[in-house]
Amino acid sequence: MSNELLAHELRHRRNGAVVLGLVLAGYAFFALAISGSLTQTVDNLTKNMPQSLKAFVGSNVPGGYIVGETFTLIAPIALVAYAVIAGSSAVAGEERDRTMSMLSAQPVTRTRILTAKACGIALSLVAVTALFWVGMALADLAYGSPLTPGGLAAGATHLLFLGLAFAAIALAIGAATGRPAIASSTAGGIAVAAYLSNAMLPLAGMGRWAELSPWYYALGSDPLRNGLDLPHLGVLTGLGAIALVVAVLAFRRRDLKG
């Protein structure tokens, strides 16, 4: 029965996830394709910059500036934005649209509704990230680059876990409040603030504080070069798990809105 809920959720998300995945894949493919020539130019520009500024610009990544932009900016922002929108609309969106009234009158518990939605979002994020990785890996095969498919997979996995964590946060706020606008603005605000602090604090010599930001655990270990960082992935997983528990507890307790 809850498979049915999950299937329903996936049907609902399928088109959006596939479109976003293809766009990211296409973007990544072309980014890698042209990175060879552009890297040289940017490297010349950033040669004398301090390391933290290079990190900010994204030119310290193997593959150079373009790959850096793709991995530290474009892809994570797209994934996190998708995660926040999907997470905040999952439960609260059905209340806003007033479809929750009928759904919650079916013989399914609130916990099952919520877990089906969480799984649906997680699988969508996996699909988007996988498509993104395929785009990168294809370009890597076609044009060659200093990156390995394994490094790309590690980078993509870190981004996936970042997306999952923010999706869970947005889901929890939506499940607790029943208001998708509050959920998306709060979770989105947290994501932006965390992004900026991860990017800016090292510039101000306050690198330790950046470790409070989830973005640090997605990008800080430089997974493109160093592969998976399990402790960092563990932090993101823990964050997501806590948010999910909060989501379930809050959603079970309260009055439904729609």
Binding site: H12, D97, R98, T99, S101, M102, A105, Q106, P107, V108, T109, G258
Partner: peptide, 18 residues
């Protein structure tokens, strides 16, 4: 509630569907 909802049919006011 779960057992109750197994045995009832409900039509909400101001019905919204997908």
């Amino acid at each position: 509630s779960l057992q109750i909802r197994q045995q009832i049919g409900y039509l909400p006011d101001d019905l919204s569907l997908y």
